[in-house]
Amino acid sequence: MPPARRAAAPLALCLLAAGCAAGPAPDPAERDVRTAVAAWAGQPSARPAGLPLAQWAYEVTGVRRDGPRATATAELRYRIDGYDTAPAGSAREVRLTQSAGRWTVTGDTAAPGAPPQPWDQGPLEVVRGAHALVLRAGRGGPHPADVAADADRAVPAASAAWPRPWAGRVVVLVPPTQEAMAALLGRPPAAYTGMAAVTTGSTGGAAGPADRIVVNPAAYSQLSAAGRSVVLTHEATHAATRRATTERTPLWLSEGFADWAAYRGTPTAPADAAPALARAVRRGDLPAGLPADRDFAFGADPDALARAYEGAWLACRLIAESRGDGALVRLYERAGREPLDTALGEELGLDGAELARAWRERLRTELAAAP
């Protein structure tokens, strides 16, 4: 018998023999649970009221039953219409009960260990501005219409600083408390003390959900109108530059550029926008070099973190003033895809050490004599 025939014969016998390769029969109750989740997810009542959605679907990945109760683990995939270019994901647990042979969904929460979604934190208010969609949960924090107005001013400012194609719109989340903000981001609340907002998003330009600007209601509410403008322009600039930002991009450049965009065109004096760094320079504590990536770590000493952001802004301000806005934009683009010294040399005509020396001299000139 040829080898191929010998290999096929056991397979034929296996298919004919009872139980040879058969798996367990599908559980009808599990099938019914999956069907019930799919039917529930298709109803308007399963979706957050007022949220414009282009996609909303639950993929059940497992079912646990305990008599007339069941819990389905699922992956929620949703896409906000007009903002997300790909679905966002959320690990969920859907609870069901059975009555008269029929399964009914009774609850839906974030899976253990998974970040919640805004609508998990209370009733959702949705306000659409010209350039922003604002989602406020739980009736806490600044009013969503006010945040939308702030964002509508910030997005054009970001576009003016970054004259490259981008969506030109942002999604802003307003949780009710700093603790709720931290929960959305999956980090300890202390990591965001003093931070008015942060931006989430994937770098490198891959298709994905829109960046989310997450507001810290405790800090944001204490800001002046000018302060709110700086914060949201900074965060909108992160969204604008996302496609050009990669792991190569040094944080002093990405954070400094965002602050440069936020302060661009304002009469803000360096000592006013960089008070922590000004104090350090006046006491003779001049930084040895440009801020390292580790200097921007969340949860770091607040004064040291402030000095890192302020120093980054002053470095980008120096580049724009000495070489022009266009050179700073081109440097940002190139720094995300090639060695920094190569980009510095070809765009600015200097290397990292020379830039650091010029920056340190600018700190002495502008901050040492500040009151």
Rank of each mutant, 00 (worst) to 15 (best):
G299H: 04
T246W: 05
L53D: 13
R362Q: 13
A308C: 10
A39W: 10
A39S: 10
A225S: 15
R153F: 02
A130N: 01
A29K: 01
D295V: 13
A206C: 08
T200A: 12
G82I: 04
P275E: 04
E179L: 08
W252L: 11
P116E: 02
V198Q: 09
C20W: 13
G201F: 14
A335H: 13
V329D: 04
R47E: 09
S254T: 12
L344H: 02
H234K: 01
V94W: 05
G138A: 15
E321H: 03
R47N: 10
V230H: 06
D152K: 00
W56T: 02
A182K: 05
V230C: 05
E235A: 01
L76W: 08
G19N: 04
T245L: 15
A17Q: 13
V215C: 14
P267G: 05
G129N: 01
A300W: 06
W260N: 06
P112H: 09
A280M: 02
E59Q: 10
G204E: 12
P24S: 11
A36S: 11
Q98A: 13
R5G: 08
G194Y: 10
A154F: 00
Y58V: 08
R357P: 00
T200C: 15
D66V: 05
S221F: 14
A21Y: 13
L16F: 06
E361W: 04
A280D: 11
M181S: 08
A36E: 08
E333T: 07
A25V: 08
F257G: 06
V174D: 05
G324V: 10
R283T: 14
V172P: 03
A273N: 01
E75M: 12
R362I: 07
R294A: 15
A312H: 01
E310A: 06
A273M: 09
G19L: 12
P165M: 12
V174M: 07
G204C: 10
G186P: 12
L51E: 07
A206T: 14
R153K: 08
A8L: 15
R5H: 14
T233L: 09
T61G: 03
R92Y: 05
A54G: 15
V171L: 14
T104F: 12
Y263E: 08
D325L: 06
R31M: 04
R248C: 08
E59I: 00
A41L: 02
L363S: 02
A17W: 13
S159G: 13
R31P: 00
S99R: 15
P52F: 01
S45E: 14
T365F: 05
P250Q: 12
A278L: 06
W119V: 02
R248H: 11
E366V: 03
P250C: 15
Q121S: 02
R243M: 13
V155E: 00
E361D: 13
L344K: 01
Q222L: 14
G299S: 06
A240N: 07
D32W: 03
A154E: 00
R34M: 04
G326P: 10
D295R: 14
G324A: 11
T85F: 03
L340A: 12
P188C: 05
R242A: 11
L305R: 12
R102N: 11
V134S: 02
L96E: 01
V281F: 03
D120W: 13
A218E: 13
P26V: 00
L277P: 06
A72V: 07
P144W: 05
V214T: 14
G349F: 11
H234T: 00
G352Q: 09
P267T: 11
R307W: 06
V214I: 12
R164I: 09
